[in-house]
Nucleic acid binder design. Structure first.
Lengths: 255, 255
DNA sequence: CTTTATTGGTTTTAATAAATTACCATGATA
DNA sequence: TATCATGGTAATTTATTAAAACCAATAAAG
């Protein structure tokens, strides 16, 4: 009956700090350009020592998410800070992926996330999604692509799914998601009509989640991603991602 | 913006072991009389050292859940082993509770748990619930009260809710639950007709959860607990729990 | 009855993780 | 220029855990 007992997964204090800060960055609760609280203050707030904070921050710096400045503070990195920054380039190149591959995976993952989010989103989750839509509207009205905010919207849906595997997978290819959405939007927004289409699709997703309509959430997310797939099918290749012949269309399924 | 950061809750390895074993006991996956795997084997399986296992087992021994025998093994305690065993007697005495108080709290907690379980129970959860019903049937057909199995049924619903606060609260008064259900069933089963009523109510709860019918799960759990409340209202006082005048009837609410 | 095996019980030592403390270096501000 | 705020580095202490060795109680085998 030893099979009942699981290996204990004890996490280091530094790893817990790392995960918490990374998650805040991934859902946009601290954004590029924001300064983290000073190390000494973070240590006190999080109930750990300053070396522990430094260990965690060091890992985030290595991932390219944070940027320390002695005498000034530690800042969340702006993605555009380093135009050549592409942490998954090597991974994707190895696997000879394409933007279409990413969208195919997103179709599976994010439709599922939308369904789960419609079931489980908290009021706080819904408020964060609404905030994302407001930010995207404001920025696109000002002529920007708002791809970072777009990413937050999708990451927030993932977190709202409350499914640890779902969240982990979305975290795992956050950078690829960021690149993919940036390229998609640059392409899409050349046609001003697409701004309204994308906005309308985002709102459909949001209202489906808010009204706990799992079927509608699934359909809305699927329509959104299929639309993007169709629109970028013959578009310019994604920067830094090797281009390969694309496989056939989507095979979305009902939950 | 320091308010975004939460205190890190790093758990000791021994605490993780303690929680895992306690949870297995609380849902009846290791039962009174069962022997735990030997310390050295547990240490290997759980990936920790033998002193860490011993620290965790020591805590469980202090709680009265485990009983070590040198040269033989460590066993899950049978509740009836110690007729005077009543860990919450002092707590409940301080607060001058009664069996009715417990049932009132259970009405709130467990109706909520049933609803959440109807939403979130896994196939494994449902299999465990079915196993509980089969055990209860077998034991009551043999003339026993099967209160331990009855407790497993209710604890398993709590775990199936996947709500950490719900689960923590149910864990917290596990002993009180055990005592309360024991006394309730001793009283109820004097009337053989009640066996079939209770069984029927349990089955209603189970099928509502299995068929994902949250409203039915709520109603079935509420009916069950209200029935028990009515039945024991003028029954004998619970052993070891101070008796006080009871407050008015239930105020159950729809989710 | 003796020996062996199995298990819990105790102690010591070593390794690792984390906290604490102190100080240095850089940049901004008064 | 001095002071303040922040990141950066290092040494020491404390806590946690692992590893190893051995003891004690009980049961099983010969």
């Amino acid at each position: 009956m030893v099979h009942l007992y699981r290996s204990v997964n004890q996490k280091k204090a530094a790893d817990l700090v790392f995960e918490q800060i990374r998650d805040l960055i991934y859902v946009g609760q601290v954004k590029p350009g924001d300064q983290l609280p000073p190390e000494r203050e973070l240590a006190e707030t999080m109930g750990v020592s300053r070396p522990t904070i430094r260990e965690a921050v060091g890992k985030l710096v290595n991932l390219g998410l944070l940027e320390p400045h002695q005498g000034q503070g530690t800042f969340v990195r702006s993605f555009s800070k380093d135009q050549n920054f592409n942490p998954l380039k090597a991974l994707v190149q190895d696997e000879e992926g394409s933007a279409q591959h990413l969208l195919e995976v997103r179709l599976g993952l994010e439709c599922n996330a939308a369904v789960l989010a419609a079931r489980r989103a908290t009021e706080e989750d819904i408020a964060l999604l609404e905030e994302s839509l407001a930010s995207i509207r404001k920025l696109t009205d000002a002529g920007q692509t708002a791809y970072q905010e777009d990413v937050y919207f999708h990451m927030r849906i993932a977190y709202a799914s409350k499914n640890p595997v779902q969240i982990n997978l979305m975290k795992h290819f956050y950078d690829l998601l960021l690149l993919g959405i940036r390229d998609n939007l640059v392409h899409l927004y050349r046609d001003p009509g697409n701004k309204h289409l994308i906005r309308s699709q985002h709102e459909s997703i949001f209202y489906a989640i808010k009204s706990r309509d799992t079927q509608a959430a699934f359909d809305a997310m699927r329509q959104h991603i299929v639309f993007v797939m169709e629109s970028v099918k013959d578009g310019p290749p994604s920067a830094g991602i090797a281009r390969k012949p694309n496989v056939a269309g989507p095979s979305g399924q009902n939950p």
